[in-house]
Design a protein around this nucleic acid. Structure first.
Lengths: 195, 195
DNA sequence: GAGGGATGTTAATGCTCACTAACAACGGTG
DNA sequence: CACCGTTGTTAGTGAGCATTAACATCCCTC
């Protein structure tokens, strides 16, 4: 058989490129990173990237779609694996917090670079994000049946703002202390009743 | 006397430019806005801006320093005008929420564009931000005397993440409903005790 | 061990953009 | 009403950067 369409050795390089892209985009913004920067970060020259991705936009798209898919999938799994809504909410909080603490670059890029995607990638990412949000809203709706969905949705977005602030704000606290703090704050904020 | 160094009619234009800069930087990011975009937004051509500001960086600096000063000053006033820490915290929350709801562009730029400032502007903005944060930490320390300052600082940053999410997430809720929601969530999050 | 795809390199190419130059009009002051 | 500082316009200029072209190398398969 002729050599496979994409060489096996390429796989590692692709992953390395995506990692470097996430890191550099988080640090300097999509527009603040050049193709040459990206190449240098993986030990090649800039144009070599075009052997793996059609262009810079596609790279950002791959990063954002990947994050969004992982979040959405993990959200689905955590909720369907829980027995009651209280447990589900805790699982969602812990999962999101772990993600934010372990991959701060991805969280940052996810937050900021939506506007630099192609129309199609943006649609995909938005759809995935919506699904993830609705997972949270569904759980909250069972805990707070008298609160309208529009309020719950706004609450969930606000809670994400809280949880996603970690990349910028974890001071001298240990990872565990920060995880605990965010869990308590997030739960308190989401369960603050409208009385 | 010769005409004053800067004509009076200029003042209005300066304000208009800063407003357009905040709006456009918030929408497309500092690097996504050109000098020509900014000129067009105030009814002139791009290069006319150089009669009012030395360059694009100085423009961003003016926007960010102005926001930071206003926040810091308002914070000081609110705290010194309150009788007890509980009241002070509510005042800080209300003030910050009003700011976030009334000037979402400024909040967005403030959050994202620190990295594009000159070293000196960045120092100034950071100093002002620190002052504002310490105002909150001081109030919180009186309400939660057993919690270490490092934890309180992290809590305040997380609360800012929550409050500053508004520009991106206020759905169909009215301004007032959103303000109430954020006040309740913010207070609950900040007072969530570490037990 | 020869052929050919996959991967990489260096050197264009062409566009965008901040900033500057040269020149015009405006409007207040003597 | 002539002067001159202020503000604006149009037409460069030069740098940065994504992308492409042309060419080299590597390594798997037969």
């Amino acid at each position: 058989m002729a050599a496979r369409a994409v060489g096996l050795r390429t796989a590692g390089r692709r992953v390395a490129i995506l990692g470097a892209a996430a890191r550099l985009f988080a640090a300097h913004g999509y527009r603040g990173v050049t193709i040459d920067d990206l190449g240098r970060a993986v030990g090649t020259t800039g144009p070599a990237l075009y052997r793996h991705f059609p262009g810079k936009e596609a790279l950002l798209g791959a990063v954002l779609v990947d994050i969004s898919e992982r979040l959405a999938e993990r959200g689905r799994d955590l909720v369907s694996g829980s027995d009651d809504p209280g447990e589900a909410l805790t699982a969602l909080l812990r999962g999101h917090i772990a993600f934010a603490l372990d991959e701060p670059d991805l969280i940052t890029v996810h937050d900021r670079e939506l506007g630099n995607l192609t129309a199609e990638d943006r649609r995909r990412v938005r759809r995935l994000q919506r699904g993830y949000v609705e997972e949270w809203v569904g759980v909250l709706a069972r805990l707070r049946p008298d609160t309208p969905a529009s309020t719950l949705r706004a609450s969930v977005h606000a809670a994400f703002g809280l949880l996603n602030s970690t990349p910028h704000s974890r001071g001298s606290l240990s990872r565990e202390a920060m995880a605990d703090l965010l869990l308590r704050m997030g739960a308190a904020a989401l369960l603050a009743d409208d009385t």
